[in-house]
Amino acid sequence: MIAFARRHGPAVLGLAIAAVALQPDGDELRELGAAIVRPAVLPFAWRSLGDAGRTADPVEAFARAQHLMRFLPAWIDGHCAFAFRYALSEEPAVTDERQRGERARVRLELAMAWLESVRPRAGRHELDLLQGLAFLPEVACRREPALAALLATSGGAAAMADPWLAEAERRFPSAAVREQRTFFAPTLAAGLLAAGDRSGAIAVLLAAIERSRDVRDQELATIWRQRLQDVVARLQGAPVDLAAVAADARFALLLPHLR
């Protein structure tokens, strides 16, 4: 015991002083642990992820990606790529439509929860992460129609995406981010109309009309505002000529609800 104290005493004392002086929190200790383990685990994890991508099912590839990304927490593009890949994967063995939709919803929720869990470590890439979170539901619904049908009762993919666009706008209040959400309004309104929420859709469109005053290209904003006003008027029961709206591809999702 004495020999141990003589040999290792200074090192232990130094460690104790460092711990008291620096007072590392849990995240820092976790990061330190990951940095120590990273060189030993990364080669296995990286190789196995490559193998899984080539030969295994998407569930295993996603699980391996989660293992790998624990050691690369700041690689936001990688997180988004693996989450998208998992959420958009197919399960050909499941033929029942409702079951396919349920499985796709579980995949989407898992992928979004995983992406959300990375936010505290995203740093200056947080905007990319938030935009990835906003786009994922819509892409997943386009890929799996059964999922779109399942989500339609609660406002569709757009209702899932809008809070993330709002969060992106709150955290990074730039004109580009704000406009992104402004031009997202028809998609969100279409989702709400599909869910039977007409007043909610009108509220979204009115908010977009209001926000369009801040769009940098005022010529574009004027046309956009006019289209939105036409749509709101039709939804409120007024007889409006929708030829211009029908010709605008940005309103294609809304058209079925305006006839």
């Binding site: 685990v41 296995f44 994890a45 196995s48 899984a52 295994a56 099912d57 569930v59 295993e60 996603f62 699980a63 391996r64 989660q66 293992h67 624990r70 579980v106 995949r107 898992l110 929860a113 995983w114």
Partner: peptide, 16 residues
């Protein structure tokens, strides 16, 4: 810290 994989297990992912 098991990976989140939903209802489908993926034991092969534990190979590292």
């Amino acid at each position: 810290s098991p990976p989140a994989t939903g209802p489908t297990a993926a034991p092969g992912a534990a190979s590292p």
